[in-house]
Amino acid sequence: MKGKEKFREMLYGYCFTLPALLFMIGLIGYPIIYNVVISFQDMTVQSFNMGNISFAGIDNYKQILSDPVFGISFKNTVLFTVACIVIQFSIGFALAILFSRDFRLAKPLRGFLIISWMIPTTVTALMFKYILSADGILNDLLLHLRLTRGPVGWLISEKTAIWGTIIANVWVGIPFNMLLLSTGLCNISQDIYESASIDGAKAFQRFFYITLPMMKQSILSVLVLGVVYTFKVFDLIYVMTGGGPVNATEVLSLYSYRNSFKYYNFGIGAAGANILFVCLFLVGLIYLRMIGKEELNDTDKDKKKKF
């Protein structure tokens, strides 16, 4: 009798999740699987229309890995992601701590900072394109302060272009990091700080021994979301530089897009997108590992408490 009831309960549960499951399979699972299938086929617009799509095995992946542009775009993507995350996380964290202090302008200022996160990416991209152009406002400022001798071509020089896009992305990323970290900060009880102060803990000790460990969960999720979001950057770079000059700002998503929708070589494009996907999946796995350990530890403690 009891077993039967349990089974019914389970059945209800699965029925409720069914619509979501169907939705995910149809709209998310299917394209992903189709994409994987395409990446093993010699699928171009020619072969599709002529109806002679042949199985290509790992040829697409081989071709991609031997393409120097892919190497460059992979390197650029990693550089872009690491630089963006490091900068936006540190500044975002600092701001979160600043605004967790109770001073008069804290709330309105925090509100203003979020504006940059709400602006559509294409608008941000165009804005930074103008700011960083040779006769843009940044060069004007530097020239007037006599910090540079002539205008610097931020986005048109191979060396600086990627940093131009990083600055634009960081500008969007800072409020995002700040916001999520602020909520994490709010959850730490002030009592802990108070008692630590009484025990004689200095500011840096309070930060490293209380704030950081207590915020591990939010820090991890901010970092993972940040990495996923930054790694697949597309619109910002597409509008700002289109991957140029030469291939200085070419990233994986642009590489994949170019092959799929400019050269109509869907097989290669799909293979590129899959490599991007696998990279992000690995990041996710690492995150899960870390979170998992944490939760295990917590449950262990709970068990001990009970006994």
Binding site: M24, L27, I28, G29, Y30, P31, I32, Y34, N35, L225, V228, Y229, K232, F234, S253, S256, Y257, S260, F266, G269, A270, A273, L276, F277, L280, F281, G284, L285, Y287, L288
Partner: peptide, 20 residues
């Protein structure tokens, strides 16, 4: 892991889901 798969899929969406 399965859940994570779907989360990453959703967020990665741009290229793969776009074409589909």
């Amino acid at each position: 892991v399965v859940m994570l798969f779907f989360v990453v899929v959703m967020v990665t969406g741009i290229l793969t889901a776009c074409s589909g």
